[in-house]
Amino acid sequence: MKTSDTDILIIPGWSGSGPDHWQSRWAAKLSTARVVEQEDWYKPSRHLWADRIVQAVRAATRPVVLVAHSAGVSAVAHAAEHLHPGEVAGAFLVAPASERAKAAIPGMGADFIPHRREVLPFRSVLIASTDDPYCTPDEARALAEAWGSEFVDAGESGHLNAESGHGPWPDGLLRFAGFLRSLTAVPQKPIQG
């Protein structure tokens, strides 16, 4: 599958992704990508954020690939319980937030974390670093296992955001391209109308 074959939905985390964040750069660079906007980037809400994702998925006209970061990964996990098999071709999940994030991020709703611990109804890869301040490697591996996600150890990479030196993140873009190629067997999504 190529980017032109998909609707790429970018799911930022708490505070959204600033202009230097790799998600913002990908949204600007990839012609079929768009950011799923949340009503309040500073108050993650399990139901509101998940609902926005589900709405965006159902409005898409091509196979959907989700690209989530941090609290956006949590939102995807919560949205998954409302998505049916086949609605999403795959999810590229980066730097999940955990109980550490819940304590460190102001305004995070009490229902946002902990995460659902059920297999996601779509293929996924979860990328996490060994020194992320918002999620331990053990927590990230446990989430990948619970969700049925391929796990990728990003080494000492911080929170995989602009602050940790991952503004353009070319290695991530190459890995994302490989992930898309692995989704070739996914059928085309019917056009809504």
Rank of each mutant, 00 (worst) to 15 (best):
1 M>H: 09
2 K>V: 01
3 T>E: 15
5 D>C: 12
7 D>A: 14
7 D>G: 10
12 P>V: 03
14 W>F: 15
21 H>V: 10
27 A>S: 09
30 L>M: 13
32 T>I: 04
32 T>E: 11
32 T>D: 05
35 V>P: 05
36 V>E: 11
38 Q>C: 04
39 E>S: 13
42 Y>S: 10
48 L>T: 06
49 W>I: 03
51 D>H: 03
51 D>A: 10
53 I>C: 06
54 V>T: 03
55 Q>W: 03
58 R>D: 09
60 A>I: 02
60 A>T: 04
61 T>R: 15
63 P>Q: 10
65 V>P: 11
65 V>N: 10
65 V>R: 06
68 A>V: 10
74 S>P: 08
74 S>F: 06
75 A>K: 15
77 A>D: 09
79 A>Y: 13
80 A>L: 06
83 L>K: 13
86 G>F: 12
96 P>T: 02
97 A>M: 08
98 S>D: 08
105 I>T: 05
115 H>S: 05
122 F>I: 09
122 F>A: 08
125 V>P: 07
128 A>L: 03
131 D>S: 04
132 D>S: 09
135 C>K: 02
140 A>I: 02
140 A>Q: 04
141 R>E: 02
146 A>W: 00
149 S>C: 06
149 S>E: 07
149 S>F: 01
153 D>C: 09
155 G>W: 00
157 S>G: 15
158 G>P: 09
158 G>T: 07
163 E>R: 14
163 E>Y: 05
167 G>W: 00
171 D>C: 04
172 G>F: 11
172 G>P: 11
173 L>T: 02
174 L>Y: 03
174 L>V: 12
177 A>D: 11
177 A>C: 05
188 Q>T: 08
192 Q>F: 02
193 G>L: 01
